[in-house]
């Protein structure tokens, strides 16, 4: 565990807490893509199949449980909670996420480290995580205005990806046998998806104005 990895995990956790807080405090999920949240829930469920078979550390197992539980809690709120559910704007959240799931699964069947049940699902979760933010970014783009908490949610998610890349560079330099191309290449693709959002986030931050994405 290095400082970049820890910072990455913490910003990841923070992003989810910011989102839960926003939904809980306002009893509204406006501006939040349910499809992205469902994709993340699938990502965590598919990746942490090893929760009961491989023990890495108490920290690892604890975080896995937290990520699974919090992502399911968000999906539950958006689908079941009577007040939150009503605020969900289906018209704006139109991204066809089933195609992402199918494409990522096919890719995982072809590109994986080992052809075993867990490894294929692990690769699938890595690919799906890389593109899971797309429905959210498209929703933000379509609605134009981004409220502060939704902006912060995406900002922290992007920061998490940035820290993970620094973590991989650090590990590559310090651990002689560190090679994991699937995770690293997917991670770089995922981080690149945030570049555009970050650009506008920093401009609005610099000008102290509300975040607005161009149409």
């Amino acid at each position: 565990m290095n400082i970049f990895r820890l910072a990455g995990d913490m910003t990841h956790l923070l992003s989810i807490i910011v989102l839960l807080l926003k939904i809980y405090a306002t009893k509204s999920c406006s501006g939040v893509s349910r499809k992205t949240q469902e994709l993340y829930a699938i990502v965590f469920l598919a990746r942490y199949l090893d929760l009961f078979t491989d023990f890495i550390s108490v920290y690892n197992s604890f975080m896995k449980v937290v990520f699974i539980a919090s992502s399911l809690a968000i999906v539950w709120c958006m689908r079941v909670h009577p007040m939150v559910r009503r605020s969900y704007d289906k018209e704006l959240d139109t991204f066809r996420h089933y195609f992402l799931i199918a494409a990522c699964f096919l890719l995982a069947l072809v590109l994986h480290e080992k052809f075993t049940f867990q490894e294929v699902f692990w690769a699938f979760s890595i690919y799906l995580e890389a593109v899971a933010i797309l429905p959210q970014l498209v929703l933000l783009q379509r609605s134009g205005n981004v409220d502060n908490l939704t902006g912060q949610y995406v900002f922290f998610l992007g920061a998490y990806r940035g820290f993970y890349i620094l973590n991989w560079i650090y590990r590559y330099l310090t651990e002689p046998r560190f090679t994991r191309w699937i995770a690293c290449v997917s991670g770089v693709v995922q981080t690149a998806l945030y570049a555009d959002f970050f650009y506008y986030y920093f401009i609005s931050w610099k000008n102290n104005s509300k975040l607005k994405l161009p149409a």
Binding site: W122, R177, R180
Partner: peptide, 10 residues
């Protein structure tokens, strides 16, 4: 354990 398939990250 085999380094390649060890997933120690989240």
């Amino acid at each position: 354990a085999d380094v390649i398939t060890e997933h120690d990250e989240l």
